[in-house]
């Protein structure tokens, strides 16, 4: 630690080199974040959320087959490492003749993961809505899907916002795993830059800082949304 700091500040030439690297790597890293990390997160989360709602509904439905399919899906995804899933999709499936672009493979992997974890959050949120809300909806002539869409899910959204935000923020960071299936997202950029100049600590810290800023902005947005959804409580 001391040696590292000494090597920087005792040597003006090295200080200048580090500042230069920090500056020149910032833009590529930011590009990686803007063009890959953020869209990858957003797309995967939206698809994952749809999967999660369907899975949650399947779990609470009275149709045995739906329940079983949903249970198996959640069990498999939660019971195996995300990295292993990504490797199976990207490196494994070509053996069966299924070749998937690295970016798409990452989207599939992350969506499936979000779908499984978030389905439990949404299932709990739906079940936490009082039975009387269903009955009130039915009593004014609404159908199952109308009650679900208009009455239950909006209330479930409020309950599930904090845990879903957790999943979302985790996903931002999990996208760094996509570097291992050759998606040139931010962390892969960082690895490439660091490999060329050997300033691992500097470059990786810079990447970490960008992840942190993104997540910080997200938690601010979460707070704003919570305030909005809490207005009627």
């Amino acid at each position: 630690m001391k040696m590292y700091l000494n090597s920087i500040f005792a040597d003006p030439e090295r200080t200048a080199r580090l500042i230069d690297i920090a500056q020149s790597s910032f833009l590529p890293l930011l590009k990686g974040a803007i063009f890959y990390t953020i869209p990858l997160t957003l797309i995967s989360f939206i698809i994952g959320l749809i999967l999660a709602i369907l899975t949650a509904l399947a779990r609470i439905s009275h149709v045995k087959v739906f329940q079983i399919i949903a249970r198996i899906y959640v069990s498999v995804i939660r019971g195996t490492p995300l990295l292993v899933q990504l490797f199976i999709i990207f490196y494994g499936l070509p053996t069966l003749g299924i070749i998937i672009d690295s970016y798409i493979a990452a989207v599939i992997g992350f969506s499936l993961s979000v779908g499984a974890y978030a389905s439990e959050i949404i299932r709990a949120a739906i079940l936490s809505t009082p039975k009387g809300q269903w009955e009130a909806g039915y009593s004014i002539g609404m159908s199952y899907s109308q009650v679900l869409r208009r009455i239950i899910l909006p209330q479930a959204a409020r309950v599930s916002l904090p845990p879903l935000s957790n999943s979302f923020i985790s996903l931002v960071k999990d996208t760094s795993l996509a570097s291992l299936v050759l998606v040139s997202e931010m962390f892969r950029k960082a690895q490439e830059i660091a490999a060329s100049n050997y300033e691992f600590l500097l470059v990786y810290s810079e990447a970490a800082l960008i992840y942190w800023v993104i997540c910080f902005i997200l938690s601010v947005i979460q707070q704003m949304m919570e305030k909005k959804l809490d207005r009627y409580v």
């Binding site: 009387g132 809300q133 009955e135 009130a136 009593s139 004014i140 009455i151 009627y232």
Partner: peptide, 12 residues
């Protein structure tokens, strides 16, 4: 038209 003991208004 049904009126419930616990009102069951839509809180949102």
């Amino acid at each position: 038209g049904m009126v419930f003991q616990s009102y069951n208004l839509f809180p949102h």
